[in-house]
């Protein structure tokens, strides 16, 4: 049963990921991305990470992708071909990645054996929200604070960029 679900989610994720870059209409690309986000959230649910699944939907599908759609509609990009002439750059990035992937596959094909869940892990799985919170605020406290600081810097940067012309006295 678990393999069946994984096969379905993985298949749809791969298919929609290709569609996001292959479709000509940017709005359709955004919708393919939406379907992809849903299936990634489904994968999280099969891994008993419900909190991550919900956050995935709220942050990516609910906020970021809506902004993408917003931009796509405002720019009115109808079947723009500009992006289809960048294959040289794409090849430059993707060929090394493909080589790495092949090396990894050929090297040691032994998947790490997943040990059966201990009692502690099962307890954590039943309330993974609490587990994530505890880990984030004890073990990974420093990286967490650094990440929030970086986001704060990005936020201030965005405000300065947006407010620049107001400071120069121009009314928009």
């Amino acid at each position: 049963m678990a393999e069946l679900f994984f096969g379905y989610f993985a298949g749809v994720i791969a298919l929609t990921a290709v569609l996001v870059v292959a479709l000509r209409n940017p709005v359709y690309s955004a919708l393919a991305l939406l379907v992809l986000f849903f299936h990634v959230a489904g994968l999280y649910v099969t891994l008993h990470a419900e909190f991550l699944a919900a956050v995935q939907l709220i942050v990516y599908a609910g906020a970021i992708l809506v902004l993408y759609l917003f931009v796509v509609m405002l720019l009115n990009l109808k079947q723009d071909d500009r992006y289809h002439h960048q294959w040289r750059i794409a090849a430059f990035v993707c060929v090394p990645l493909l080589l790495e992937f092949l090396v990894l596959l050929a090297g040691n094909g032994v998947a790490p054996q997943s040990s059966p869940l201990t009692a502690e892990q099962t307890a954590a799985a039943s309330d993974n929200t609490m587990a994530i919170g505890t880990t984030l605020f004890t073990t990974y406290l420093f990286p967490f604070e650094v990440a929030s600081l970086i986001l704060l810097v990005a936020m201030i940067g965005a405000i300065i960029l947006a407010k620049r012309d107001i400071g120069e006295g121009g009314q928009t």
């Binding site: 419900e50 699944a53 919900a54 709220i58 039943s126 929200t129």
Partner: peptide, 14 residues
């Protein structure tokens, strides 16, 4: 489900 309210928020944003 143990994330009930997040589930509602997620679908409200959709």
């Amino acid at each position: 489900i143990n994330i009930g309210i997040l589930y509602i928020l997620a679908f409200a944003s959709i």
